[in-house]
Amino acid sequence: MGGATMDCTTIDVAAVERKGLSRPGSSKTLPRIAQIKLVSQHPEVYEPCDDSFALVDALLADRANLLLHQPTLCLEIGSGSGYVITSLAIMLGSETPTAHFFATDINPHAVETTRKTLEAHGVHAEIIVSDIASGLQKRLKGMMDVVVVNPPYVPTPEEEVGQEGITASWAGGENGRRVIDRILPIADELLSEKGWLYMVTLTENNPSEICQLMREKGYGSRIIVQRSTEEERLHVIKFWREKGDEGKEGSKFGGSGVGSWLSQLPLLSFLRNNGSSN
């Protein structure tokens, strides 16, 4: 957290947006995201930092696909300050007016902070104090078209996991995987057939193993943003169900081409599976 950013995909646009600056002549074409000066704060709530920025940058980088995706329900698990869900709501809002947003956090202060940040930007999400998605899981099974999560990924002693307050925003237990490994099956349950998951991971979390775990559940994956700071190496990974496979190829095959694309799936997934076993 903190430190110099050395390896960024979309830093220019996002950095300009975060500061609320506008580029001469181009401000209208830039997709908007949450402004840091309007993000609410609380001593027990994690402030937007490099990992939050990486996640928003990943969503921005994938925004064209998200617009084609036409999500109805979107969820952020662990919304903290509200910076990410607010940014998602802003960047999709005007062009996908049928999208609706949910946000959860285990920390009641965080949920309250999320609410203030959303309100300060004039956007809305349904907010719930919840452990990952407790209370939502049953009814929203298979309904979420987009799930985003910046999990508590920092490797810590096991006893720090699940503590109250701000600790819950980063304490990840062994290899930082304690909470991530609980989130993955829940995300799988929540995601719709066309659903996409965006998740921040740290190199210490062993992202390739996470991708392998998700592959066993039938998901393809792709790194959208990689970023190194002085302290950590972050990846934002996108997951999608291989069956529909609109994630990776959405920009190419979105819209009217989907029908013929689906008919080629058995062959393509066969090829892909063969390719990945090496």
């Binding site: 285990i106 309250e112 104090v129 919840s130 452990d131």
Partner: peptide, 13 residues
């Protein structure tokens, strides 16, 4: 009872 305060439901167990 799951409390609702300031319009926010708390579903923690």
């Amino acid at each position: 009872r799951f409390p609702v305060n300031k319009g926010i439901p708390n579903m923690l167990l």
